[in-house]
Design a protein around this nucleic acid. Sequence first.
DNA 1: TCCGGCTCGGGAACCGGTTGCCAGAAGCGT
DNA 2: ACGCTTCTGGCAACCGGTTCCCGAGCCGGA
Lengths: 356, 356
Amino acid sequence: MTRKTISDVGGRRTIRDVAARAGVSASTVSRVLAGDYPVSTSTRTRVMRAVRELDYVADARAKAIAGVGTPTLAFVLDDITGPSFAHMAHGVEREATRLGHLCLVCSTEGNSEKQLEFIEMMRAQRAAAVILVGGTADTAEYRERMASIADSLASAGSRLVLCGRPPLDPGAPVTVIEYDNESGAYALCAHILAQGHRRVLFLGGKPSNTTAQGREQGYLAAHRARGLDPDPALRLSGDFTRDSGHRLMRQALTLGLEFTAVMASTDMVASGALTALHEAGLNVPSDVSLAGYDDIPFARDLHPPLTTVHVPYEELGRLAVRTALTRAPDAPDEHLLLGTHVVVRDSVAPPKGTCK
Amino acid sequence: MTRKTISDVGGRRTIRDVAARAGVSASTVSRVLAGDYPVSTSTRTRVMRAVRELDYVADARAKAIAGVGTPTLAFVLDDITGPSFAHMAHGVEREATRLGHLCLVCSTEGNSEKQLEFIEMMRAQRAAAVILVGGTADTAEYRERMASIADSLASAGSRLVLCGRPPLDPGAPVTVIEYDNESGAYALCAHILAQGHRRVLFLGGKPSNTTAQGREQGYLAAHRARGLDPDPALRLSGDFTRDSGHRLMRQALTLGLEFTAVMASTDMVASGALTALHEAGLNVPSDVSLAGYDDIPFARDLHPPLTTVHVPYEELGRLAVRTALTRAPDAPDEHLLLGTHVVVRDSVAPPKGTCK
DNA sequence: TCCGGCTCGGGAACCGGTTGCCAGAAGCGT
DNA sequence: ACGCTTCTGGCAACCGGTTCCCGAGCCGGA
């Protein structure tokens, strides 16, 4: 008897079905469900019973178009698989649901055409905010298209949020929440140099990627601040994956590059590099020092525990959402730059001699 | 002149605004945009120009309720931050967009009440499928509620998918895609025992979690298959995080537990355990062998590279989506059990002596 | 007894789209 | 010049809700 009868099953229920069953009008059902508006107890009871019997749930899309209902927020990133992205995603999702929003997620797989498509879809979904996550190629065309997208979104009452990505030209209605890649890399590299290293291999990301660029700039600036002129041959580029770090490191070793320390643009990259180093019989940090960037949870389980830069990714995501959703309509555009800090573990030590 | 004029900006545009500007009716605009239906070139041009000038995008929700437009798929998990979840999420997202679906994601933070709420919301969203990811506490009440949810979803034309979680009682309209935790753990533990280990410490997850249970069963079964009766004191439980592994391992060491190998229920757990082992001055694998489960990318960068069980997480997610979305309305319920395999690296070796 | 106010519920317009049906205009053949 | 088909586009109904507005019934007070 607990099982529904056949006649109850199948087909979506509309509010009119419920109304018919309860012997009232659709408006009454709507009002009972909404809870505002006075409705007599007997009517309410009948309606609720019909709702239960028909297992009715109001169509969220219909409510949305009528102006009620849960707002949505969209989240566009390259690849949820990267630990730092995952943490941002987590922050975004938490804060979004805390503020009563639903969360749409789209992976672009690094394809910027796809990114634009997604943004357009999100605009069609009337998302309260569209959050773009992670570094990007910062071309003139990119800025222009983004600015135009920001305008479109703004005029539809939505908001473009750039998270971990540099601001557009001033005037574009955009919320920007970044962390300071250059400062972090600067501090980390300064730490390495302070240990006495003079030839530091830099394992970069895609040269066009703003995050990779920022970190490389920090690396360069730290050198210059000490009056050093880093050897361009020591700057390799790949991407932010573990495999890239592994490959680049092997390549550097095969090439016979001379260096006493390695600064990876990402903990993932550092992780791959570490293995390549081990495979070559090199010890870290006694033979070569190694540093990463991001401070993912795993960093402290590497051997040796990785010296890296802590980035508050989850906080970043949270903040992006909060800032975008709680802002006054005509408030000035925000641009928050979150600080990072070096976390010193055991993978960087003074140089023993020259590598290889 | 490239900038929009003030009068163009502000407020959402409706199809009627476009129609008015193009001097046609709304239906014509709709038809031009849809692309089917014959429309004269001049009309089409005027409409398209109005669309461009007003920067119009049709409201996806309105389309949805009219029966056209992008379907949605929902994805409910505990925490996107775990690497295995992230990979499933990736697979789900990829396949969903490949099949032209949008992807809603919700984190439950392990709260099963929240999970039910989310499912209800997704039903309201008329999601084409609701995918529940990851292990769960498998109580009678859980089964009952899930079965009822599955019925609700099914009768609304949607579908409940259980991904990496055991099936419900037969008859419930559910798609289940799991991997075989018990077999994987069995094979891994058999490998460890074959090396000669007799006292294997098991670092488990939440005792109520089905994934944790499956892996523990495999551990036990492998012992029994060799006629061994594993010491219950060697089975510790925590959760699937790195910190849990670290804590449990320290605890085992402080307690003076005797074991020559450690089998962690997760690579994350193994990772934390490894560090605890290192901190205690123990070498892996010469002093203690260690194995994980999941084969996350990092596993091979640990020192030593971790012997573990490979689980095709991304494939799992992909398959879940494909199976749910492409199934015939009255096809039998699917239950796919994906295989896993042990990947042997360097963290398991024959025992040297007794630990501690 | 009559009137005013309050409680309750229904009809209809609206949200922003799609689409079946139909009518006017053009193009064509005879 | 007339009738027929074909092309084109508008009207209106519909998707599934919400909510404004109004009227019916009931109550109490003068």
